[in-house]
Amino acid sequence: MGRKFWKNTEVGVYRVLMFLATSIIAIALLLIIVSILYKGLPSLNWQMLTQVPKGGYYFGKEGGILNAIIGSLYLSFGATILSFIISLPLAVYINIHRAKQKRLVNTVRFLLDLLWGVPSIVYGAFGFTIMIYFGLRASLLAGIITVTLFIIPIMVRSMDEVFKTVPKGLIEAALSLGSTRSETSYKVLSRQCIPGIITAILLAFGRAIGDAAAILFTTGYTDYIPTSLSQPTATLPLSIFFQLGSPIPEVQNRAYASAVVLTVIILIISIISRILSRKYYQERIK
């Protein structure tokens, strides 16, 4: 009786702990979203979303964060497009052209995983060094390049995981029909995996728009919407960061409001990719 009793008690205790652990995770997310919305929503208004900072904005006067919103979108779109141009061919390359050289492919995957693990602040510092070396100033372009380097591993590895699931027979069949390798790769592979590719793009885009450390040195910060690649630009994460550093309560409240904007963007991205991946999953089962 004693032994069994202790056995059952042990299981019971652990089951409670396990349930608590899972609950903590769910509650943490709830707390994050609720506290941001609670603090930020009251200060969020139309003016904030549609105007750039006016004179005295940083002392609590008129204006908005349109510069940061547009800047962030420019930066993330630029970096996502640039890294897509590099990532898709690379993912195709290791999954088709070099598919037979297992060692090489695995080495590339290993390197990509390492790059994925490198903190964004290191990319930022590195980007800054390069920028100085070429005599560039902090600009949208420098930011785009830095962020591109930082999201390439994410994009390639996500696409890679999708491509891995394409049956080898399909690729071989297409090749034997006489299409050249690039045609096969792009047509067969890409079309088969479009939802997966889009998910990968969204993932990278989310990283790009949310990251602050990589662009801290490289994009600068201005109150204007940039009109060319060589101009510095504001971004949402940095605008939150800087406004929060201000001692003036109105400015701090705007930081919370900006946080709401960024959170909503991230939530939208994650909902879209969720829908897509579910669809993708269903198609794959058929």
């Binding site: 997310l29 941001i36 602050a212």
Partner: peptide, 13 residues
Amino acid sequence: ILAGIPSVIYGVW
């Protein structure tokens, strides 16, 4: 979603 939330938002929280 937790994985997607930006660092700066965690900071604000």
